[in-house]
Computed example of a mutant assay.
Amino acid sequence: MSIYYPYCRGKQFELIAIRESAGLLARSNFEPIIEPVKESLSGLDRALKSVIEADGHATVIVNPYHGDHSEDGVNIEALLNDQFSDHADSIAAGILLKKDMTVEDALKLHATYPEENTTFIHAGFTEAKALAAELGQGLVSTRHVFFEAHCGKLYRKHFQGATRVLLRDGFKRRRNADHPRLEEFSDLHATYEEEGMDGFGDFLIVGDDYTETGGPAYAVAIHLTFVDGDKDDAMFIYHFVSDTRDTPSDPAGKFAEALAKLIQKLNTGRSKLIETSAVKEFRQLHANGHFPGLGYVKKLSLKHHIETIADYFE
């Protein structure tokens, strides 16, 4: 059974991060949850094929809340049926339980997919008690992922006996220029069992707040997480932010400033960042003076986060 469920919104570089990390995700028993937000599903298709090739698992939300499929998930359903129906044990359907949904809506979606491989994702739904009652004896074979922001302990209690996963947003969203140098991210990787959960998840270094586009970057930030063994294994996040932040021009120059701060921190030998493949690539970009684009930088931070959590569980 998986322990860690990174939740991503299926933007291009998030899907590439999943694809490039597919082997590590599978080896570590991590299962990404993907909410497809872009109309084109080709990136999702490629990411899921990589997950299957690596003998891994993923959950795909069939009724997204955000993005191009929020009105109906018919294209996502078609992709799962056409391409992945033979891999139902690897690719699960995720049912997002939203604020305005009824128990009937939830059960109708549930009936569409193979029962043993459907995940309920609780994100504002209010009928916990009624849903648990309707699932009845079948409850124990279901899996439930709870957005912590919407699901307190009393809510989660209704699903005792099922597989339960708690999803916490450790990333505080603000303008890049306003990030502190260092802050706490989460302790859930070390405390999920204390919470009575079978697994945990997060929104990586993106956060739960969804925006269609990044908008012009007045400041460029590199976000990197680490586990601090001197602080009970709590996870912290560095924000390496450019000094130039008054106009949206010259992202390459700003990236160079942020990267210089990261390299300077690494070179102290006291950063507590582990040498992930992403950190090695940041070193290479610094050595070459190369700017790969902001999406690519985000992808590296995502991969670093996944590798850091994998390292913790090793």
Rank of each mutant, 00 (worst) to 15 (best):
T112E: 15
L96I: 11
L266K: 02
D82Q: 15
E31S: 13
T268Y: 00
N267K: 14
A217I: 14
K11V: 12
L167D: 06
A190R: 00
E115N: 08
G56W: 00
Q12S: 07
E71Y: 08
A26H: 03
S271F: 07
H158Y: 15
K172H: 14
C151L: 00
F203N: 05
L109I: 05
N267T: 06
L285C: 11
I33T: 05
R283E: 15
S301M: 06
D209K: 04
L25W: 07
D198S: 13
P216N: 12
S85Y: 04
K298Y: 04
L79N: 11
R173G: 05
A17W: 02
K299C: 06
L25M: 11
F13L: 10
T142M: 14
L15V: 10
L204A: 13
L224M: 15
S2M: 09
I237D: 00
S70G: 04
R164W: 09
I33Y: 05
F125W: 07
L182Y: 02
D202M: 01
R164P: 06
L109P: 01
H66L: 05
A252G: 09
T247K: 10
A132R: 14
G201A: 14
H304S: 01
P6I: 10
R27N: 11
R174T: 09
L167G: 06
G229W: 00
K298T: 05
G229S: 08
D250P: 08
V140L: 08
F240S: 01
V206G: 01
H69E: 08
A149S: 15
E184W: 11
E71F: 14
E257G: 11
R156P: 01
D68A: 15
A93V: 10
R164D: 12
V140D: 12
S242C: 01
A252I: 03
F282M: 10
G214S: 13
H122I: 04
L154H: 12
L204W: 06
V241F: 00
L302C: 10
L224F: 12
A149I: 11
S277N: 11
R283T: 13
N176W: 02
A106W: 14
D228P: 04
R46H: 13
A17Q: 03
L204F: 03
Q160V: 05
E53H: 07
G215R: 10
Y192T: 01
D68P: 03
K299V: 08
G215K: 05
F240T: 07
G161L: 09
F255N: 13
Y210L: 08
D45Q: 11
G94T: 05
A130W: 14
H57N: 07
I76R: 07
A26Q: 09
L188P: 10
E195D: 13
N63A: 06
A217H: 12
K157C: 04
E183R: 03
L285P: 02
K299L: 08
K303L: 04
G199H: 10
Y210C: 09
F255W: 12
V103R: 02
V51K: 00
L25Y: 12
Q83E: 15
E134R: 15
A221Y: 00
A88W: 04
K99Y: 09
M101V: 00
F30P: 11
